[in-house]
Amino acid sequence: MIDWHTLSPQEIERRAQSISPGEWAVDMQRPIATLLGSCVAVCLYDPAVGVGGMNHFMLPNMRKREGGIDVDSLLSGDYAMEVLLNGIIARGGARHRLKAKAFGGGTIISGIAASGIGKRNADFTCEWLAREGIELLASDFLGACSRKVLFVPATGDAYCRRMTTTMASAQEVAKAELAYAEALKRPPPKSRVELF
Rank of each mutant, 00 (worst) to 15 (best):
residue 90 A to W: 03
residue 35 L to E: 12
residue 129 L to E: 01
residue 126 C to A: 13
residue 160 C to F: 05
residue 34 T to S: 14
residue 146 S to V: 12
residue 148 K to P: 04
residue 50 G to E: 00
residue 159 Y to W: 15
residue 49 V to H: 02
residue 144 A to I: 07
residue 118 G to S: 08
residue 20 S to I: 02
residue 15 R to G: 05
residue 104 G to E: 08
residue 117 I to A: 11
residue 104 G to F: 05
residue 38 S to H: 15
residue 149 V to H: 01
residue 80 A to Y: 03
residue 89 I to L: 15
residue 174 A to F: 14
residue 34 T to I: 05
residue 10 Q to M: 10
residue 151 F to H: 05
residue 28 M to P: 00
residue 71 V to T: 10
residue 6 T to N: 09
residue 33 A to F: 05
residue 120 R to M: 13
residue 177 E to R: 00
residue 186 R to Q: 15
residue 93 G to N: 05
residue 175 K to G: 11
residue 195 L to K: 11
residue 71 V to Q: 10
residue 117 I to Y: 04
residue 96 H to M: 10
residue 11 E to C: 05
residue 66 E to H: 10
residue 184 L to Q: 12
residue 33 A to P: 02
residue 108 I to E: 07
residue 119 K to R: 14
residue 126 C to N: 08
residue 75 L to K: 11
residue 156 G to L: 01
residue 24 W to M: 04
residue 36 L to A: 08
residue 151 F to G: 04
residue 129 L to K: 01
residue 90 A to E: 15
residue 16 A to F: 04
residue 87 G to R: 07
residue 79 Y to W: 13
residue 115 S to H: 09
residue 78 D to V: 11
residue 130 A to R: 14
residue 41 A to V: 03
residue 128 W to Y: 15
residue 47 P to A: 00
residue 119 K to I: 08
residue 51 V to E: 00
residue 167 M to E: 14
residue 108 I to C: 09
residue 5 H to W: 05
residue 123 D to K: 09
residue 11 E to L: 12
residue 188 P to L: 14
residue 160 C to A: 14
residue 118 G to W: 04
residue 91 R to E: 15
residue 106 G to A: 10
residue 31 P to M: 06
residue 106 G to N: 10
residue 110 S to L: 11
residue 39 C to H: 01
residue 13 E to F: 09
residue 91 R to C: 10
residue 30 R to W: 03
residue 107 T to A: 12
residue 28 M to G: 13
residue 160 C to P: 06
residue 88 I to G: 05
residue 190 K to V: 14
residue 59 L to Y: 12
residue 18 S to W: 08
residue 10 Q to H: 11
residue 135 E to T: 10
residue 9 P to S: 11
residue 174 A to R: 04
residue 20 S to A: 12
residue 36 L to T: 08
residue 92 G to T: 01
residue 146 S to E: 11
residue 42 V to K: 02
residue 72 D to I: 06
residue 116 G to N: 08
residue 186 R to M: 12
residue 111 G to S: 12
residue 47 P to H: 00
residue 32 I to L: 02
residue 184 L to F: 07
residue 183 A to S: 15
residue 167 M to F: 12
residue 37 G to Y: 04
residue 77 G to Q: 05
residue 110 S to I: 10
residue 142 L to S: 09
residue 105 G to T: 10
residue 15 R to Y: 07
residue 41 A to R: 02
residue 175 K to R: 15
residue 22 G to F: 01
residue 99 K to R: 15
residue 141 F to W: 08
residue 138 A to N: 11
residue 154 A to Y: 00
residue 116 G to H: 07
residue 115 S to G: 06
residue 104 G to S: 09
residue 168 A to K: 13
residue 38 S to P: 04
residue 134 I to E: 03
residue 49 V to G: 02
residue 128 W to F: 13
residue 26 V to I: 13
residue 154 A to F: 01
residue 168 A to R: 14
residue 180 Y to I: 03
residue 22 G to S: 03
residue 27 D to L: 00
residue 6 T to G: 04
residue 143 G to Y: 09
residue 1 M to V: 06
residue 59 L to R: 13
residue 164 T to C: 07
residue 165 T to S: 15
residue 168 A to F: 13
residue 175 K to P: 00
residue 132 E to W: 08
residue 48 A to D: 11
residue 86 N to V: 06
residue 157 D to R: 14
residue 73 S to L: 11
residue 5 H to S: 12
residue 55 N to P: 01
residue 55 N to I: 04
residue 144 A to W: 07
residue 103 F to R: 04
residue 73 S to T: 10
residue 33 A to I: 07
residue 38 S to D: 11
residue 152 V to D: 04
residue 91 R to N: 11
residue 172 E to L: 15
residue 15 R to F: 06
residue 154 A to L: 04
residue 161 R to V: 12
